[in-house]
């Protein structure tokens, strides 16, 4: 498709909330001229630069890799740098901060709850013995790499948490991305940390908090498929519960 460089105008409605002056959030509407190659993030930047410098939102890489520009656009969690204004024209866009998180200001949410959960899954290799440097690199076959590769692509954008109805109902739930990352390390042939992560995985708020709605995987911009990671681990968690994992001498018990 040839790029249309003619400028059209689209209406962007933004949620605004300043906890110092507002008692509750409200919407402000802006008319934004745009060309075909402009992302929703660029629309927000236009508003900030030209129309209202007080509009607050997060962004950094503008290429779908830093994970900081997640917003609800017309009720769907998306990366705003990865979504184009042309796809909404001639209708207007309504931009809100990600669902299920407290608002710090305007489109900026408080991620602390997720960061605590991320820490709780020990998202790093847990090994019984430190391998000495002299022993050389720890080689993996392509097959071993494939077992966790997709889950390692997560950029912590939290779209999946905004999409998850279970997290919305009960924020104790460890949630899609943290559980997917938990699985990313459990599935790594270099890792022996099943047991140190078992408490999180086996809890009511762990994999058992998921009812396989699957919307998390649908909105994930990196095809991580957290729903699949979680449901694979319902099997693992059930095997652990009935002692089968120990019998199989899995889970780092050797």
């Amino acid at each position: 498709m040839p790029i249309d460089t003619t400028t059209r105008t689209i209406e962007i409605e933004c949620l605004r909330y300043d906890p110092q002056t507002d008692t509750e959030p409200h919407f402000s509407s802006y008319q934004v001229p745009f060309s075909d190659d402009m992302s929703v993030l660029e629309g927000l930047q236009y508003i900030k630069d030209q129309l209202d410098g007080s509009l607050t939102f997060r962004w950094s890489c503008r290429m779908a890799i830093c994970g900081s520009c997640g917003q609800e656009v017309n009720g769907v969690p998306v990366l705003s740098c990865h979504t184009f204004l042309r796809d909404y024209f001639p209708h207007k866009l309504r931009i809100e901060p990600l669902n299920n998180f407290p608002i710090i200001r305007d489109l900026v949410i408080d991620q602390n709850d997720f960061l605590d959960k991320l820490e709780s899954v020990k998202p790093y290799l847990v090994t019984k013995l430190e391998k000495p440097l002299a022993a050389g690199p720890h080689l993996q076959t392509p097959q071993q790499l494939n077992r966790y590769y997709a889950y390692s692509q997560c950029i912590n954008c939290l779209l999946c948490y905004a999409a998850c109805p279970q997290y919305g109902l009960n924020s104790d739930f460890t949630g899609p991305a943290a559980l997917a990352l938990l699985h990313r390390y459990n599935a790594d042939s270099r890792d022996q940390g099943w047991q140190v992560r078992a408490e999180v995985i086996n809890a009511d708020a762990g994999v058992w908090g998921c009812t396989l709605v699957g919307y998390c995987s649908e909105v994930c911009p990196k095809a991580v498929d957290p729903a699949h990671a979680i449901n694979q681990n319902k099997v693992n968690s059930a095997m652990d519960f009935f002692g089968v994992l120990k019998l199989m001498n899995k889970g780092g018990t050797e």
């Binding site: 086996n202 058992w208 968690s237």
Partner: peptide
């Protein structure tokens, strides 16, 4: 966090 009893019911 104590282990969930959910595996029993989930298997059934």
């Amino acid at each position: 966090m104590k282990p969930s009893s959910e595996p029993i019911f989930w298997m059934l």
